[in-house]
Amino acid sequence: MTVMALSRSGGVHVALAALAALAGIVILPNAAPLYTLINVTLYMSMGVFALSLALLWGYGGILCFGQSAFFGLGAYAYAVAAINFGDTTLAAVFAIGVPALFAAGLGYFLFYGRLSDVYLGVITLTVTLIFFKLINSTGGDAWRIGAARLGGFNGIPTTPLLTIPFTRIPMSPAQMFIFAAISLFSTYALCKGLIVTRFGRAVIAVRENEMRAELLGYNARRLKLAVFVISAGIAGLAGLLFANSVFVSPTMFSLSMAAQVLIWVVVGGLGTLFGPVAACFALQIATAVLGKLGIVDPNIVLGLVLIIFVVFVPGGIQPAFAALLHRLMDIRADRPVAGEVAR
């Protein structure tokens, strides 16, 4: 098998995902009721959020407990910029840029300070909780950035809707749905493409063993910082989509938000991309249904799901499903193929 042939094998997943996304984009806006359309848009924003941690933790090996800090920061940056500038296209750039810039500053101290994984987790969680406390305490007129009032625990309900680029026409729910779908697919394709580049392979090598990677000539700290910044930018994009589906509020920085995304990645499969997105959709639908039924607190079910997966399906949905498929197709178990790199 040649090098070229091997490098082409990853493209099949992206092509299949593209086809599925395209079908969804065409069918749903015309067929689904408005409530469903908005809900699916919300789920897709969360799917992008799941991808941000799937890339950082699954491929970069960086367990960030405070991914919601970037998610919330993206949403607030968008809301503040949109209210002040009146132009949501520029605000969208802020939604991605501000969390990425913040991650660059925070990551510099974390990685160049050679902090261990445990401290990294604790610090990132602390950062998101600081944001949660801070934003919650910004009620009143004194707390404003330009014309935008931060609104304390009420958030910013007057967040302007994303407009069609370079116009003043706000996107309709159907257009927002299409934008979210394109964002989700583009982010998936970006992550998928990134991990097969030289950069991606180097990041995976650092995840596997930092010292070993350095002995091969890689600057491990710079690579970790780079993937941290990219992941924060993706979380910011998710925040932008969320802000346009619901509204901007401090709950975006909350502990439950920080925990949710971790659960999606664990359940979906660490070291995979499709799995966390699928888990995100499935668990959000389950939470919504359980909430409607009112029999049991959805958070208890979420906790149970996490425990069950950690104990019985530690690899997550995607690897378990792939293993099942391989078994069904009678692929020899003693010749594992390293496709999408699992931990």
Partner: peptide, 8 residues
């Protein structure tokens, strides 16, 4: 790197 393929 045990999780990576020989090619990777």
């Amino acid at each position: 790197f045990p999780a990576l393929s020989v090619m990777d």
